[in-house]
Amino acid sequence: MSEAQLDAPKVVQRSSANLTFRRLMRDPASLLAAVFILALVAFAIGAPWFAGWTGHDAIEQYRDTGLSPVGLPVGPNHEFLLGADQLGRDVLVRIAYGARISLAVGVAAALAASFIGVTIGMTAGYFGGWIDTVLGRLMDLVMSVPFLLCALALVSVFGPSLWLSICVIVFFSWTTIGRVIRAETASLARRDFVQASRSLGAGNLSIMLRDILPNLSVPIIIYTTMMIPNSIVFEATLSFLGLGIVPPTPSWGGMLAEAGANSIYLVAWWLVLFPGLALLGSTLAFNILGDGLRDALDPKGRRVKRRRKPAKPVTEG
């Protein structure tokens, strides 16, 4: 054991949650992202309120007011704040209802995938041996599958639906976190404190839950956060290809797909801009928050900013 690696211990009196929070609060980008996400959640929850306020339903087509005499959608005006689509539906209300789908799919898929990934990854990493070989191969296998093509194949047989989308997303995204957790668990399981617990007579389950799981909280939080935007994009992509949410239920990907069909968006820019911004904003916000969380939870990767000029000369003693 080298001496040099064990530098003088730093006495940290603040709790780690407290420290994380303080670091996060110091990062304006993360703060902004968190505010955006909260607003988005409020927006999604308040979708019926928007419907009531505008007097527009999400699915109903307002052919009289929403379409111009030649049948083209009207742009943003005082009645349709974000314009109307090619069928005369209110874009604002549809985006609000679409936010529900995106958030629900994003969060549900991320949580489910994270749960599966953590369970399988921990099992593989902790037990090692043939269990690890089998589970590791399973992860390799899932990662070697052309997922979008398989999603296509599944939809062609079972027809598009919300549940199928979630299942497909979960099935193809648990491996990322699974691999990370597997590697982390394997290295934790070799640590002395696990040996110590075992030498005290602790059982496997007890060691996994009490000794290993708490030490995995950082990668679990980070990777689950990072999986949310990926799931949102995945769902939007499926809907964009007509494989996800079934119209006329509003979803951001579906709205963009309808805008793209017949290139209608070239004359009605608001059909792309607003759902596109909603989608981009959400993924960006979650990604920024994920980055911020990683920096705050795992400060190893961070470097302290260099001061431009040396401070005043040392005058001690």
């Binding site: 404190f193 040996q195 110590a196 617990s197 030490n215």
Partner: peptide, 14 residues
């Protein structure tokens, strides 16, 4: 058993 590495033998989260 008492281990060598006083940093590795205690669970940092407990």
């Amino acid at each position: 058993l008492v281990f060598q590495d006083p940093f590795g033998s205690l669970n940092p989260r407990r």
